[in-house]
Amino acid sequence: MTDEPDAMGEPDGKPVRIAGFNVVELVGGGVLSAVGIAAAIASANYGLGTLRQVGPGMFPMCLGIVLALMGVAVIFDGRRSMSVAPRAPWRPILAICAGLAAFGLLVERMGAIAAIVGLVVLVGFAEPKFRPKTLAGIALAAIAFMSVLAWAFYGAVNIQLLPE
């Protein structure tokens, strides 16, 4: 049961290396290179054009290749890097993502009030201790704010508070 971040840094803050390469820089450079290669491949379909009529694929193609090379440079440049990845806070990240997603899903289907309640309740799980009273207060304040905004800016901020 080793989480990825654990594999990247020892608890005492010493960087982890594979074959002399710092893992943080290795992953970072690798991601950059992968994005670059993907972009270059995708833009091959767009048409490179000519100097007279430069096609839509020319720029992304060049940028993709440059990025792929830069990724390799990052890996080598970071050989002596002392970077250590922190332990990712999975519970807060998941809770917050879920809360935001709940808002996005609910705001048009069930109205803003339901969306706010969904958001606040779910992001509340980011804290080790769930605080129902605090969260209820925040939700009420947010609903009140939203109502005032929807009323005062009627026509510019079109937010349905309740489902139709």
Partner: peptide, 20 residues
Amino acid sequence: HVLYPGILFFICLGAYSSQN
């Protein structure tokens, strides 16, 4: 712990209402 849900609320509000 009081502030971050509020910030997230404003983020949602801003992101949603900028283009509905």
